[in-house]
Design a protein around this nucleic acid. Sequence first.
DNA 1: CTGTTAGCGCTTTCAG
DNA 2: CTGAAAGCGCTAACAG
Lengths: 345, 345
Amino acid sequence: MKKGQVTIRDIALKLNISISTVSRALRDSPEIKLETRKKVLALAEKLNYTPNVVAQSLRVNKTKTLGIVVPELASHFFASNISGIQDTAYKRGYNVMICQSNENFEQEKSDIRTLISSRVDGLLISLSRETSSFEHLQHLIDREIPFVLFDRIVENLPVSTVTVDDSLGAYNVVQHLLQQGCQKIAFISGPKEMYICKKRIDGYQKALEEAELQHPYNNVQFSDLTNEDIRRITHELLDQEERPDAIFALNDPVAVEVLKVLKAKGLSVPEDIALVGFTNMPFSDALEPSLSTVDQPAYEMGRLAANNLLDQLMNPADFQPKNLVLDTELVIRHSSSKNNAMPKG
Amino acid sequence: MKKGQVTIRDIALKLNISISTVSRALRDSPEIKLETRKKVLALAEKLNYTPNVVAQSLRVNKTKTLGIVVPELASHFFASNISGIQDTAYKRGYNVMICQSNENFEQEKSDIRTLISSRVDGLLISLSRETSSFEHLQHLIDREIPFVLFDRIVENLPVSTVTVDDSLGAYNVVQHLLQQGCQKIAFISGPKEMYICKKRIDGYQKALEEAELQHPYNNVQFSDLTNEDIRRITHELLDQEERPDAIFALNDPVAVEVLKVLKAKGLSVPEDIALVGFTNMPFSDALEPSLSTVDQPAYEMGRLAANNLLDQLMNPADFQPKNLVLDTELVIRHSSSKNNAMPKG
DNA sequence: CTGTTAGCGCTTTCAG
DNA sequence: CTGAAAGCGCTAACAG
């Protein structure tokens, strides 16, 4: 944003042509004489001309910018989502502006407001852990501002969503644990309202029901996802009469916290208690024991979300919201392999 | 960016006053009658008016947006930097646009170009691992585009920088290892040209020199920071005649890779070989053994960098570049505590 | 193929 | 205290 910036007017003046001709030449309009175009391009190059995108935006009422709202940046999962979004956006000529809600509902609303007032063309949103009312999203719909929800979504809104099959992912985990001989599998969840919690609980319970255990066991613990709460819950689980022989944690960070408690208590994993996480975060394989988990295609989720949003922006007329659901992959490592057979992870 | 957006013109029309009055009222200009201001504010509220920042930007030739370039987003360290930047920027009325270079020099140049053409008011840059020439930065200086370098910086440019005292941080690590009785401490570095490598090597060597060991040992290995290379180097170190009794890794991810090799080889840490990283990434305390490392105030670095840049933007006239250097903190955990005394980590 | 003109929404002199 | 008018840099009818 410097004073000396050269404009199409400068070019026009030096070339003794009109600014509209310059504008057209720069944009490869077909109705410009080749010779003129070349002259313009050459001079633009020489003068180091860069179009003022602010002026362009104002004129065409489009900023070519997407807004992103994620619960937190310092999470490998969301960072990967964002990478996928960014790469896709750049490839299609868009920039991105990123906000983090810090898992805070008010901040989330404020972020959206900020992005709107920056006139982003569309939004990609992953809801905060606190978010349980959705007027702010309805407001976007009313104002016809296109957006896509990913990972932390809410259902039954007429917008596109991108998720993994959380339910199936959880189902697979429980099946695996059952195969390992676990009978009493507890699930440490996050808040009741969170989409991913609901879905993973569904999968967890479905697998347990299908198993038709002699002594049915169904043990879901809701946490607020703070480390203190995780520790508290873990201790409680260990003190319960029917102590679980496996703990399935909502995600890897939770699993790590559980693991610390188990170790501190002198319990061995997986012999005394098996443990599985969700997300396959970096270094989950470097823990001891290495952590079994569910791999999520984070980058791909971002890519799909961005492409969907951009399709919508390019062609608003015949756009239909899509609910994209990606597959996860169970990654079996030592924290849940009771037999001594070396797991593949 | 929707059609129905209300503008100051709409407000002016309904109130039968001029648009300049509305503009002034909205901006709390002192020369507006209280009554008028109230009327305007009320109607703006009612109509859900949001200023068009694009138009504002064009008019005042400022976007109130900062550009950020980092090597990668999916790194807790840079994500924390960014958090610090963002929080500070928002507090002072600025937005941010983020790009990642993916540790690629060409991408870094392209990112900067993109941000410039988006007319950001200033830039916060952390250089890619490949960057060893700096014309692109000089170009910014020539064009008088304010920017601040952080963490991955280059010296001797007339711009502000924010770093930690890498040299001292490394020095402290080596001192600590010597105290633990280690005599042969190897350092696994990244590329020669990287600022942080140079500084940490300085600290490493200074500490070794001061120690005046009977059998001086100085073993710096340069890597390209890929996991393959780290593994190769680790194996080589173990095969050397004078096998090290401690490995100091450039950062925690490198340390994790080293740790895996050591474990695979059946070596015990720290008894056979002590290990220390740098950065204090999340879950470095959950490794086994828990990883000794150097804590960096990443969020604070971002905060300081942003504040410095914003000071520069607010008051370009009497601005002097500053080189801010923050302290690190040695975090001693089990991977380097040979005595059985419980480390504080 | 090119030029003229209007205007995107806003801020800011300059007049009153 | 308020209004009129110019203009930020660019695009897009419209006219030739």
